[in-house]
Design a protein around this nucleic acid. Structure first.
Length: 809
RNA sequence: GCUGGUGUGGCGAAAUGGCAGACGCACGGGACUCAAAAUCCCGCGAGGGCAACUUCAUGUGGGUUCGACUCCCACCACCAGCACCA
């Protein structure tokens, strides 16, 4: 019988699986649920690339093992289909995004099927379809009702290349997340989600998640919780008050001036008549600076004097009020108390503008060069002199509190999520503007607000919907008067912030999802996707899930219980694969040549899943060879006639039990490379056994069957085929995952190392699980050990079971 | 600047504080062959020794320990994230 593997095996089983509905998901199964999810992908024009294979094939192997372990595994697939590339493509070629997206999805579906994953395509979702985005709009409405969606005039990040505003997360580092163009600052009225209301919950929830520490760190930093004090400065001759946020309230007595952000509303109110001109000039100058320039740390400090004076809350001394762009409008209160002696920025500014520098903290060793920014002991601070920074903070805040001029407070770096985009290819924001009623949300019964097909894609900086009269002109749902629709669309990250819920009930036309189904299958047990989403998708999804939870639509606290980031497969040159570098490797080519399973197994063997690495052609040839050895094992067994030999070969038995144990543990941890290494060892062990004359049929059958099951998740088409050739009519994936006997994972005789003073001096064979006493006795009897111990006093003997003995002399 | 990660043969990489380099690639030797390919067997960190053996080796320098790739401290290099966040 020919047990060899070829591409035709893939084709054969893909067809049979489809016909037999092998991977039909049964919602009502009473097996324990396992929700396995890989981040869905954008339908790109090119074929499935290495990244897709890497992201989807090996997690599917993991899922197959879970299935064999008796779980009801739910592993859906779909498309994050709205977004800029399709729209830009339309601008370039005139092909409508809906058409190009549809075509790309069809190609990708076909290709994903080649991967041989256990997706049940009945659960597929596409975020650009009405039946999906209707409910994305519903999510918006619910957040609006709850006061979590609002519209405001604010300085926002604008990408001149994509011609749309961006969320803070998508403009980090001053660059557009998509095209890396430098973002500009604009003052615009936009829609936001109030993610800041959840800052604390998002932070707290991280604690119990089985997520990579790095990712938790990124989110923690992004949320940026900071505790400090709020201090109030009255303004001389005004009712206005300036509130500042500081983490160093211990330096309060060193304040010699106050600085407002140029955008701070107070600026216009307190600026004196003769300083008006200078202040206006400065504000104009700042407005024209790019984000990059403005936040550059090497640029010299600039600013302007408002002419106003603030009153120090404790000394009642008057200090000048300046504006400067080193103060950010969007962090804290948009105003700072300046302590030039103990803050580098304040110091630089004071030097430039000739302002007073008052030292109030001494380092514990007395040596202090300004600016001194660490904590220390207070001086020149009146009643607080001699206090250490930590105690001084408490004492000063206490004093401020008595006067109603300050208190402890917390700020966050996190900003509200800007969700409107001036682009066509997204879900329309379901809102109309009525002359009488103002902002009116579209009632749920009128959803979806359909995206019109006939629009002009010319880029103008406004959404193409703005020029589409049939879309814009409508009537007010409240009063029936003429009204205009909102023409911005939703950030595509809104679509992907709840898709894991829709997967569970994708065709529900009455609701976004059935709560009972969601309660049964959430949270996602294992989520696999790229680390680049740490401060975007993964944060947004958690927020939306928590918000929906607070409204009673879902029950849990966190959507993704356990998270894994796949690494990146690089080009052979160690660089990221890119067309411009010409180092791309086509997955298709290799799949066509070696078959889907060889390709998958190579990916599993050649790299650590979470790290990835450079591609190598030699590696895949080695795996192809391995497949031939696997075939040999089954051929040898197939030719063996049933016999009466009951002699159990201990060595083979140990190999099998050990391998089952290691493979199970390694697969559980996404360590496919070591799993495959162990399976290669087992292959050699079986092959070696098969050269013997006294083969035990029953033992070999048990071994070979278990072996096939262990290989099955990594080579699904191939092992399904083998299973059939071995005479089975049911799927190997309906078999139970092999179990091991822990007592049979170690041989009866083991070789241990004997050390003298930590140096290995001998290796001896002893019975497994020997007691410490026996190990000690056997070790000390050994001749070469005695060469080192003779005439010396033995101080101590350390015994590690089945491993080593260390004799200290 | 701050934070995090990584550093082991010619290469991809393994190692609950317990025999460093599993598994594989490449390489060398041998068997089979008229020959080659394929396959199989042996070797393969570096130095020294005919040899049994022995010394040195996990980025560098210290430390803890009977014993350290693993834990602690300092440093170097590379990568990533954040960065005028008060």
């Amino acid at each position: 019988m020919d047990f060899s593997y070829s591409k035709s095996v893939d084709d054969k089983w893909r067809k049979i699986w489809e016909e037999r509905k092998t991977y039909k998901f049964n919602e009502d199964s009473d097996k324990p649920k396992y929700y396995l999810l890989e981040m869905f992908s954008y339908p790109s024009a090119s074929k499935l690339h290495m990244g897709h294979w890497w992201n989807y094939s090996l997690p599917d192997s993991f899922g197959r093992m879970k299935r064999m372990q008796g779980y009801n595994v739910f592993q859906p697939m779909g498309f994050d289909a709205f977004g800029l590339p399709a729209e830009n493509y339309a601008i370039k070629t005139g092909i409508h995004p809906k058409d190009s997206t549809q075509k790309n999805i069809e190609t990708m579906e076909e290709q994903l099927k080649q991967l041989g994953a256990t997706y049940d395509w009945d659960y597929e979702i596409k975020t650009n379809e009405e039946e999906y985005y209707k409910w994305t709009q519903w999510v918006f409405l619910k957040l609006y009702e709850k006061g979590l969606a609002y519209r405001k005039d604010a300085p926002v990040n604008y990408c001149p290349h994509c011609q749309t505003v961006l969320a803070n997360e998508q403009a980090s580092g001053g660059e557009c997340e998509r095209c890396h163009t430098k973002v500009e600052h604009k003052h615009l009225t936009q829609w936001f989600f109030k993610i800041t209301d959840y800052a604390d919950k998002l932070l707290e929830g991280l604690k119990d998640l089985d997520w990579p520490e790095r990712t938790k760190r990124i989110q923690t930093n992004w949320i940026g919780k900071n505790t400090g004090a709020k201090v109030v400065f009255n303004v001389e001759g005004h009712d206005e008050k300036i509130e500042v946020f500081t983490t160093r309230v211990d330096t309060l007595m060193g304040v010699t001036y106050v600085v407002l952000a140029p955008e701070n509303e107070l600026v216009d109110k307190i600026t004196t008549a003769d300083q008006k001109g200078e202040i206006e000039d400065y504000k104009q100058k700042v407005l024209h600076l790019s984000e990059i320039d403005r936040t550059s740390t090497v640029r010299e400090k600039t600013g302007a004097f408002t002419g106003a004076y603030a009153i120090h809350p404790l000394t009642k001394k008057r200090v000048p009020v300046y504006i400067s762009d080193y103060v950010l409008a969007s962090y804290g209160t948009g105003a700072v108390m300046a302590v030039p002696a103990h803050d580098e920025r304040d110091y630089a500014f004071a030097k430039k503008f000739g302002l007073e520098i008052k030292e109030v903290i001494k380092s514990p060793d007395g040596e202090t060069t300004l600016p001194y920014t660490s904590s220390g002991v207070l001086v020149n601070s009146g009643e607080f002199d001699g206090l250490e920074s930590g105690k001084a903070k408490l004492a000063i805040v206490e004093k401020l509190k008595q006067n109603g001029l300050g208190e402890m407070t917390t700020t966050y770096r996190l900003r509200d999520w800007l969700i409107s985009r001036q682009r066509y290819w997204g879900a329309p924001i379901p809102v109309v503007y009525c002359e009488h009623c103002g902002i009116v949300p579209v009632p749920e019964s009128q959803l979806p607000v359909k995206l019109p097909y006939n629009v002009d894609f010319k880029p103008t900086g406004k959404s193409p919907l703005y020029y589409c009269d049939e879309f814009v002109n409508t009537t007010c749902p409240k009063c029936g008067a003429k009204a205009r629709r909102e023409t911005d669309t939703l950030d595509t990250f809104v679509c992907s912030s709840w898709y894991y819920l829709r997967y569970l009930d994708p065709h529900n036309s009455k609701a976004p999802f059935d709560k009972a189904k969601v309660d049964k299958f959430m949270p996602v047990d294992k989520y696999v996707g790229g680390v680049e989403h740490a401060a975007m998708h993964l944060l947004y999804a958690r927020f939306i899930y928590k918000a929906l939870g607070d409204m009673g639509y879902v029950s849990g606290q966190e959507p993704f219980k356990s998270l894994i980031h796949q690494g990146t497969i690089l080009g052979a040159d160690g660089q990221k694969m890119s067309k411009s570098l010409g180092n791309t490797v086509s997955a298709d080519e290799y799949v066509a040549k070696f078959g889907s399973d060889v390709f998958r197994t190579y990916l599993g063997f050649g790299f650590s899943y979470t790290e990835g690495g450079p591609w190598s052609d030699d590696g895949i040839l080695a795996i192809n060879k391995f497949f031939q050895k696997v075939a040999k094992v089954f051929e040898n067994f197939y030719d063996l006639k049933s016999n009466e030999n009951k002699q159990v070969d201990e060595e083979l038995e140990v190999w099998l039990n050990k391998t089952i144990k290691n493979v199970t543990e390694d697969m559980e941890n996404f360590q496919f490379n070591t799993s495959i290494a162990r399976l290669m060892e087992l292959t050699s062990a079986i092959t070696k056994y098969q050269t013997r004359k006294d083969r035990n049929y029953e033992q070999e059958k048990h071994t070979v069957y278990s072996y096939a099951k262990l290989l099955a998740p990594l080579m699904p088409h191939y092992m399904e085929d083998v299973w059939e050739k071995l005479g089975h009519e049911t799927s190997i994936f309906d078999e139970a995952w092999p179990k091991y006997d822990i007592s049979k994972t170690v041989a009866k005789q083991v070789e241990i190392a004997v050390q003298v003073n930590g140096q290995i001096r001998a290796r001896i064979n002893i019975p497994a699980d020997s007691s410490d006493e026996d190990m000690k006795k056997l070790a000390l009897e050994n001749q070469s050990v005695q060469n080192y111990t003779n005439g010396k006093q033995i101080k101590k003997v350390i015994c590690i079971k089945n491993r080593l003995v260390n004799i200290v002399v």
